[in-house]
Write a protein that binds this DNA or RNA. Structure first.
Length: 409
RNA sequence: CGGGAGGUAGCGCAGUCCGGCUAGCGCGCUUGGUUCGGGACCAAGAGGCCGAGGGUUCAAAUCCCUCUCUCCCGACCA
């Protein structure tokens, strides 16, 4: 992909409307475009990262035996009346009427809808257990949207729902999802912690939150420097009694054991082995996909810009060409790398070296490859690792082998 | 929803107290030339209903009123 043909328009100055690091860098790097407060469009770069995150999630959900579907965002209010959550979530729902005067909302979450679907098809214990998930846009009329895509009114969420015939089954699925989440966040380069949480308006009897530490975190946990443990309560460390310090945390995922709250209210019943009709036992598991964009940046950046983990970066390589007469060579090298399955952004713009380097640092792709006077004089290509700043001087063949190895190609 | 800060060119800002504007500056953009391994230089250009509406005044970006949008702190947050 050629830089000059890409929809990449970095800003030189920090955007004024952004205060926090991730929001600033995502706007500055033209990953996002703000439409209104809490409403964002993902530009091609941002969309690439979103897709990469989604694919990490898909891979791990599928491995855990979950099946992907896509539910409607448009929902009739009546669906919510059975569980009473039309009242509970009334404030956050975007509500309106259709031409037949029917009350609709844009789904803020999907427990009710998935329960209606499962109720229709799952009639026997033989059809259990199941895990279904989707990656879909949610709508919440937030009181105070903030930090860009961290808390937005329209956002992308991965929501999964498990269905079991008994508590043991739920326990197993809960564990499966829990460890899938650990894999997902690890692969996304996030240093997360887990903590037991209240289930709040979701209902249910057990839940864990996955959190990363960041300045802009909206939740506060107490941290023990000695034990490296986090606590919710304002006591001293339960292990070593040391004083605790406050840490701000971003919630990136949340898993809940829902039990029968929804299945009872919506009469999602199945016939068990003993012939009795019983409510299906549910769990739900959410990841803020668009929020991860911010969370990853918030925890992976330096003074020059973003440092994407390899798993989610928009490109694998920023190939910077510093001489106009090397353009063709660079494009040829880019093609070669792309045929190996690498994503390469060839910066062949007629701009000074500083501009190109700074943009490469800002955009944050893991490898910066430089073709310039070293190539002209000795056929050598420079490579800089964005994260470690480590530099190499390679022949073309060495470079290709290095990148092949780095990406297991 | 309470408190605070803001809205002037695509982006970042000055000007607002103390009215005189035919509204500036930097970046970016266009054209030509010189540069070309670290946000280059010269020359010539284009680009604004000064957030919106009303008022005061000979005269409003500037003063007054109303509204609106954005950001921050807090409350809230599946």
């Amino acid at each position: 992909m050629l830089y000059s043909k890409s929809f990449i328009f970095t800003l030189r100055d920090d955007p004024k409307t952004a205060e926090c690091v991730s929001h600033k860098l995502l706007l500055k790097g033209s990953y996002l475009s703000m439409i209104s407060s809490g409403i964002y469009s993902y530009l091609p770069l941002g969309f690439r990262v979103l897709e990469n995150i989604s694919n990490v999630i898909r891979k791990n959900m599928n491995l855990a035996g979950a099946e992907e579907l896509l539910m409607s965002a448009l929902q009739p209010i009546e669906m919510w009346q059975k569980t009473g959550r039309d009242q509970v979530l009334s404030e956050v729902m975007f509500k309106f009427k259709d031409r037949k005067n029917r009350n609709l909302c844009l789904g803020p979450t999907h427990e009710e809808e998935i329960t209606e679907i499962v109720k229709k098809f799952v009639l026997s214990y033989k059809q259990l257990p199941r895990i279904l998930y989707q990656i879909q846009t949610k709508y919440r009329d937030e009181v105070r949207p903030r930090f860009g895509v961290v808390r937005a009114c329209e956002f992308i969420m991965k929501d999964a729902y498990s269905f079991d015939a008994d508590e043991d089954g739920l326990g197993e699925n809960y564990k499966k999802m829990f460890s899938a989440y650990e894999n997902i966040f690890n692969e996304c380069g996030l240093k997360f912690i887990t903590i037991e949480a209240d289930s709040g308006p979701m209902g249910g009897n057990a839940s864990h939150e996955f959190m990363v530490q960041a300045e802009i975190g909206e939740d506060i946990l107490l941290y023990c420097e000695k034990c490296g443990k986090y606590f919710k309560e304002k006591e001293n460390c339960l292990d070593c009694a040391a004083k605790l310090t406050e840490k701000r945390m971003i919630e990136i995922g949340h898993v809940f054991k829902l039990g029968t709250k929804y299945s009872l209210a919506q009469e999602a019943l199945f016939v068990d082995k003993d012939g009795a009709r019983k409510p299906v036992i549910m769990g739900c598991y959410g990841i803020g996909v668009s929020r991860l964009l911010s969370a990853i940046v918030e925890t992976n950046y330096d003074e020059k810009g973003i440092i994407w983990p390899k798993s989610v970066s928009p490109f694998d390589v920023s190939l910077v060409v510093l001489s106009e007469n090397l353009k063709d060579n660079a494009i040829a090298l880019g093609d070669k790398l792309e045929r190996l399955g690498l994503k390469v952004l060839v910066d062949e713009r007629n701009d000074g070296a500083g501009v190109k380097f700074n943009d490469a640092y800002l955009l944050g792709n893991p490898y910066i490859v430089i073709m310039g006077k070293n190539y002209t004089s000795s056929g050598k290509i420079d490579l800089e690792i964005r994260k470690t700043k480590e530099k190499h001087n390679f022949s073309e063949e060495e470079l290709i082998n290095f990148l092949k190895e780095a990406y297991g190609k």
